[in-house]
């Protein structure tokens, strides 16, 4: 057999395996990722599947009980409680870092009639403050001084 035939056969076998694996559905493992505002306007078919929503915990926290493993809080689309909000209930181990202003990702289902997201999974984001949180109305860039003496 010529070289290129051997290569092609090998490629084809591996590609077929890859395609089969990747396209074989994994339906149960797919979740639809929506923003908070999209959640409120989603239709029934989308809501029927697993959902994943990212948002921010607002100041309206009903409960964070690590002992009894319950968290009930409000989630907003934007960092400072602006934009659409939903209520969220979670039963399970509470991760570190869950507090007002925290960036979170929840996975579960949504009931639009109650504006309630029931979360099976709750992830609080890696809190390394890689982005500086700037209070609304100010801009860190606008405050830059480009003159003003040497810093040494």
């Amino acid at each position: 057999m010529k070289n290129y035939v051997k290569y092609t056969v090998a490629f084809a076998l591996v590609a077929a395996a890859l395609l089969y694996l990747v396209l074989s559905g994994f339906d149960g493992d797919k979740v639809y990722y929506l923003e908070v505002s999209e959640l409120l306007t989603a239709d029934k078919t989308e809501l029927a599947k697993g959902l994943r929503v990212a948002g921010y915990v607002t100041e309206n926290i009903a409960a964070i009980d690590r002992l009894n493993k319950v968290a009930k809080f409000e989630m907003s689309e934007s960092p400072h409680g602006e934009g659409s909000v939903i209520n969220c209930e979670y039963y399970g181990s509470i991760p570190d870092g869950l507090e007002e202003g925290a960036s979170v990702v929840v996975e579960g289902s949504f009931d639009p009639s109650q504006n309630l997201f029931t979360a099976k999974k709750l992830l609080a984001k890696c809190p390394s403050k890689y982005e500086v949180e700037v209070p609304p109305g100010e801009s860190a860039a606008a405050e830059t001084i480009s003159t003003g003496g040497n810093i040494q």
Binding site: V22, V31, Y32, Y33
Partner: peptide
């Protein structure tokens, strides 16, 4: 092939958004 599969699953939310709803994969795949 493994790298392609892992990149595909990782980037799925970005790709799928271009075609409609954003899909994210769980750990099993």
């Amino acid at each position: 092939a493994l790298t392609i599969a892992l990149i595909f699953y990782t980037m799925l939310p970005v790709f799928s958004e271009l075609f409609g709803s954003k899909i994210s994969m769980g750990q099993r795949p």
